[in-house]
């Protein structure tokens, strides 16, 4: 249970969601949650567990089965469309519309029937464009945007609505790593600089761990575990819920079993050391200072080399690929193949 603060933007009390009150149709049972200003909350859970339903319910698009949603910080009782803005997974189809026009729809709750943007509206739209760094896109047609640009534009549209709360449903789905990081950074920045409450439903465990102030974890028993990412890692809640297969949360890496029965003494510093170790881990070597084979990372006049030495040979490799290639050709005794569930498993 997350603490309630002075700027609690959304609070739920015994909120129960589902298709009907029958046990099998329930999605969430009696949730007590708080969403506070200035916090980036990542909401995680497996597909179909009801993340989108909860977001739609919090946004007032759907009625809960029972329980209540209140907005303690909304003391003057302003309308919902001025309190919560949304970024949904609904696909948008449009023919002739510029990005600027799409973003300006965020101002619709504040416009009368003439739909004319006042100077204040234009200023808020400009701020939204700046916060999402979409300046270069505003004259483009919405159809020309890539998936990542489209998400940024939809976030800009939500920012233009200038609400204390933004709820986002899978804004990083189907995006490459670079765009995912960019979007999470924008959201984090917005939460901090504009003191907004931001809830992001996402699958990206790695990003959520690094970016979120608070995690909401949907559990199989129809509850939501709440806590800082670090607490949830250390008390192993995350492990239990995700039943992680080979991904070590405490190091943030995928576990590789050292199936090659060969130890290597790796000497080096900095990123080069980390990435070389990463490659050796992946290929099933174990790192040991007492090993027979030694790999030394040599920095020679801006040139990078991997010097592989043992009692019987010396080899200078110019790339990690060449180094791995050389190591693979050394005669060795393979260990019996490890049992399933320990190697070749990625995060997903």
């Amino acid at each position: 249970m997350q603490r309630e603060a002075a700027d609690t933007c959304i609070k739920t009390e015994k909120l129960t969601l589902g298709y009907s009150n029958q046990e099998k149709d329930l999605l969430f049972y009696e949730l007590n949650l708080c969403l506070n200003g200035g916090e980036l909350v990542c909401f995680m859970g497996s597909n179909g567990i009801g993340k989108s339903t909860l977001i739609r319910t919090l946004a007032g698009l759907q009625k809960p089965l029972s329980g209540g949603i209140s907005f303690p910080a909304n003391k003057s009782g302003i309308e919902l469309e001025k309190w919560i803005s949304l970024v949904l997974t609904d696909r948008i189809i449009t023919s002739s519309m510029t990005v600027y026009e799409l973003i300006s729809f965020g101002r619709y709750p504040f416009l009368n029937w003439k739909l004319a943007l006042a100077n204040d509206d234009k200023r808020i739209i400009e701020e939204a464009i700046q916060a999402t760094r979409t300046e270069s896109l505003i004259h483009k047609s919405v159809n020309e945007l890539s998936d990542g640009q489209m998400q940024l534009v939809m976030i800009a549209r939500a920012l233009a609505q200038d609400t204390p709360v933004i709820l986002l449903d899978e804004p990083t789905a189907h995006l490459d790593l670079n765009n995912r990081v960019e979007i999470m950074r924008v959201l984090r920045n917005v939460a901090k600089t504009m003191n907004k409450a931001i809830l992001v439903a996402t699958h990206e465990l790695d990003l959520a761990l690094q970016m979120a102030d608070i995690l909401w974890l949907a559990t199989p028993d129809k509850q939501i575990e709440v806590g800082t990412p670090e607490d949830l890692v250390l008390n192993e809640t995350l492990d239990k819920i995700f039943r992680l297969k080979g991904f070590d949360l405490k190091t943030g890496k995928v576990n590789h079993a050292p199936f090659r029965n060969r130890e290597i003494n790796l000497i080096g510093t900095g990123y080069e050391f980390l990435w070389t170790k990463n490659a050796l881990d992946r290929e099933g070597y174990s790192i040991d200072v007492l090993a027979q084979i030694m790999i030394e990372i040599v920095y020679d006049q801006n040139k990078l080399e991997w010097r592989i030495t043992s009692s019987s040979f010396t080899k200078n490799a110019l790339s990690i690929a060449e180094m791995l290639d050389f190591l693979a050709k050394l005669p060795y005794e393979p260990k019996p193949f490890p049992p399933p569930g320990q190697v070749y498993l990625s995060k997903s």
């Binding site: 007032g60 469309e81 803005s85 739909l115």
Partner: peptide, 22 residues
């Protein structure tokens, strides 16, 4: 003409339209 506002946002779908007060 009275429906200009909903017509303009209709392309975004029902959920978005409601979320901006239509």
């Amino acid at each position: 003409l009275g429906c200009v506002k909903p017509l303009n946002v209709w392309f975004m779908g029902e959920n978005y339209a409601i979320s901006i007060g239509v």
